[in-house]
Design a protein around this nucleic acid. Structure first.
Lengths: 208, 208
DNA sequence: ATGAAACATGAATCAGTATTCATGTTTGGT
DNA sequence: ACCAAACATGAATACTGATTCATGTTTCAT
């Protein structure tokens, strides 16, 4: 025992208490799930620890066994959301050869995900204020994904030449706006229609 | 005194205290300006009334002469921002006949405005949590503007046929994303380049 | 010039809630 | 079966900050 390693050595984050038993694991997950629902519904500052723990069915003090602060659950939520969305999208685009088709399928998967998890949107948005780094990481990773796809597609001659960076941001912006239309503005437009007209625009532009 | 009319009858909003003298007007504006700076810098919940009033150079109680609650200044700020942006854009597009060119000039003006007033972005974003109605109104009006422009351009044969609604949301999403790149991600890319490549995409799409 | 309405003050109130802690209870390896 | 580590509890702590209020001061229409 001569290595006074701090915590689990990992990579700085989640430095406090990883559960060590099945019971702990379950409780932690219960809290995380409750936090997602409560923060998603009421917003970060209106969601009290009391609300979260009572939704999770545990005592208030239990919260601090697994999370150092209120902010920490929030950050973890954002991280997890990011992983989930990326996973969903990469799943949906598996094996699609044509990049353009892949992007289209990715957009559809994204919109479907967002519609199924409306809390996601709010939580990630609020990260800009609660945990800006997590916010930047989330959208940075998103933009990177687009940029990579675009660069490869350009190299493969599947799309025209153009600045991949701005294009990446633009495509991401489109995805976000359509997602917002669904979640914040409760649009009735079916996802397939959104995807179709968005990709008509993306592919052909609006020149007559 | 037989008409127990609630408040000033007006249209529900700003029902409290419109200043009635020049002094009052000045004080109110000082508070509003301070609120913009402080809330923009620290975010809604970290910006206390104390911070705002001390930045404005008035006593804490003075705040409540002009605003019923903390939320109320915020809402007013969002409203004013919306007016300002729309005004800036319409100014910049005055007299441009070709719709496509007008949209392009509008995007440039928008990005320039956002870069000059980075607080705008944060405040409007935060409205989704502090005052969702103001948020929806802001972006709703924005989308309407785009939709109208697109519909007219379509009728005039200046752009191809396509769903104006989704297109409006998509274009708005692009503008937002580029603005965010400037403000949140501190991109160095000059605005004219952003506008140029964005509009290359919007006009021609990415088909090879 | 003057008094009622406007405006300004800042200390006191009041409520909410993140975090800690002293005290039990449960678990799992031996 | 046993006990040290994990886990759980919920009341108490501690602090922040929005809003109110009783008391002055300034403005402006007459």
């Amino acid at each position: 025992m001569n290595k006074p390693i701090g915590k689990t050595d990992a990579s700085q984050k989640t430095p406090v208490n990883q559960p060590k038993t099945a019971r702990g694991e379950a409780t932690r997950n219960a809290i995380l799930g409750a936090a997602e629902r409560v923060i998603g519904a009421k917003g970060y500052s209106d969601a009290s620890i009391g609300h979260i723990t009572s939704e999770a069915g545990v005592a208030q003090g239990t919260f601090y066994i697994y999370f150092k602060t209120k902010e920490e659950v929030f950050s973890e939520l954002v991280l997890e959301m990011g992983r989930l969305v990326r996973h969903t999208i990469s799943e949906a685009t598996q094996g699609i050869e044509n990049r353009l088709e892949a992007e289209k399928a990715g957009l559809r998967a994204f919109l479907e995900f967002v519609k199924a998890h409306p809390d996601l949107y709010r939580i990630v948005q609020e990260a800009l204020f609660v945990d800006p780094d997590a916010y930047r990481e989330y959208y940075g990773a998103f933009a990177d994904g687009y940029r990579t796809g675009l660069t490869e597609a350009e190299a493969a001659g599947q799309i025209s030449i153009g600045d991949p960076d701005t294009r990446a941001w633009a495509l991401m912006g489109i995805a976000r706006a359509l997602g917002e239309q669904l979640v914040v503005f409760n649009s009735e437009t079916p996802i397939s229609e959104l995807v179709a007209s968005a990709y008509d625009l993306i592919e052909n532009g609006i020149k007559p």
